[in-house]
Amino acid sequence: MIAATEAALAKIADLVARFGPLMFHQSGGCCDGSAPMCYPRGELKLGARDVHLGDVGGQPFYIGGDQWERWKHTQLTLDLVVGRGAGFSLEAPDGVRFLIRSDVCAVP
């Protein structure tokens, strides 16, 4: 349900070396919403309804249950782009930002 590009995997390896184990949580809403957030593992307290979509570079990737209901017809791929995303995501100070690319599994 979640894959990652070479660029994303390389950044994950770099972040793991600097910060230790990581976690991802897919955001929604305004500003940097719809962007995946990368934190030290355990930084965000997971809720009962968060869904574990799989691991990227050995790091778990989660999304809120309600949001997943509306996303589950798509295959997600974690990518990396140049940018200056806000939020508390770990990669932002490096001038790059994780990004989700999507493919359709079934037309809604």
């Binding site: 949580h25 897919q26 955001s27 929604g28 500003c31 940097d32 919403g33 962007a35 965000l44 307290k45």
Partner: peptide, 13 residues
């Protein structure tokens, strides 16, 4: 805070 939902949750936490 004004922003998105995951950071919103983190801020509440």
């Amino acid at each position: 805070f004004t922003g998105e939902t995951t950071t919103g949750r983190l801020i509440m936490q």
